[in-house]
């Protein structure tokens, strides 16, 4: 898919003219941004560019001062995070935030909360509905764990998994929300080049097999350039460029604002 053809497909997520103000400080200044359906999009920018703030607006942690966020056709601006998550926005965290003292399978099953319905009486009474729901949840969790490749660790506490497996578990957990959009916050932080390369393939597989759109915040330019179909660059709260990897690589404003600052990384292959 080329960047041009993406413009015409329908959007999985649309952020329109988002502004976030903290007191006198404007962290995000009127950013408009779309994630086309089943695409892989990256959000980059130097530290302090407002990437994380923007991310938090999408997931409902911050209410934007102005602007709207739409998931598909649905306006989710200012909804609470759990509501937005249940409507189909899954995310992972920059510094892994698993439920450490729950098993891998339980971690995934937590994310299925909004897709299950048993109430207190049904749980205590262990009705047929509740038992079937539990069984289905467990099977689906196992399926998700198998999908990300850690199925044999289903009964391990999340805190005992290796770093790489924890990252995978976070993706499995987010996928259990059955999201339309998956937000990955610096997913390759702490990975070596080989692991990052494997990860790029993994992201493609997630998109293709789980039919989700993926938004990454990422610092590793080689990953960004290889994985993204479209890249949006933020600097000081403003969108300064948007386009395919080649456009971004050659965009003078981007080089000046971002790639230029980090020197050698600017010549990213």
């Amino acid at each position: 898919m080329t960047a041009a053809s993406l413009e015409t497909t329908k959007a999985a997520l649309t952020a329109d003219n988002i502004m976030v103000r903290f007191g006198g400080l404007v962290a995000v200044k009127g950013v408009t941004f779309t994630i086309p359906d089943q695409s892989i999009v990256s959000l980059i920018g130097p530290n302090g560019a407002g990437k994380t703030t923007f991310f938090n607006v999408l997931t409902g942690l911050y209410r934007p001062t102005t602007g709207t966020v739409k998931l598909g056709e649905l306006d989710i601006t200012g909804q609470s995070p759990h509501k937005i998550a249940s409507l189909g926005l899954g995310r992972t965290f920059q510094n892994i935030r698993l439920f450490g003292l729950m098993t891998a399978a339980e971690n995934v099953m937590v994310a299925m909360h909004s897709h299950t319905t048993s109430n207190i009486l049904q749980i205590v009474g262990r009705t047929r509905h509740q038992r079937r729901e539990e069984k289905d949840s467990r099977e689906f969790a196992q399926e998700m764990l198998d999908f990300v490749g850690i199925g044999r660790h289903a009964d391990e506490y999340a805190r005992n998994l290796s770093y790489g497996d924890q990252r995978r578990l976070e993706v499995a957990r987010a996928l259990a929300l059955r999201p339309q959009v998956l937000l990955l916050d610096e997913p390759t932080a702490g990975m070596n080049p080989q692991e990052s390369a494997v990860f790029v393939d993994f992201v493609h597989r997630v998109r293709d097999e789980q039919k989700v759109s993926v938004l990454l915040i990422e610092h590793d330019m080689s990953v960004v350039m290889r994985v993204s179909e479209r890249i949006t660059v933020l600097d000081q709260g403003e969108k300064i460029a948007e386009g395919g990897p080649d456009d971004i690589r050659n965009n003078p404003r981007v080089v000046e604002a971002y790639l230029g600052r980090t020197g050698t990384e600017g010549s990213a292959r």
């Binding site: 997931t59 942690l61 609470s80 995070p81 759990h82 509501k83 998550a85 249940s86 899954g90 995310r91 965290f93 935030r97 698993l98 439920f99 450490g100 003292l101 729950m102 339980e106 937590v110 994310a111 909360h113 909004s114 957990r173 987010a174 259990a176 929300l177």
Partner: peptide
Amino acid sequence: LAIREDELAASMMGVP
């Protein structure tokens, strides 16, 4: 349990 472990992450996973 999820709330006990990490409230923010729990809410991001759809737990009200």
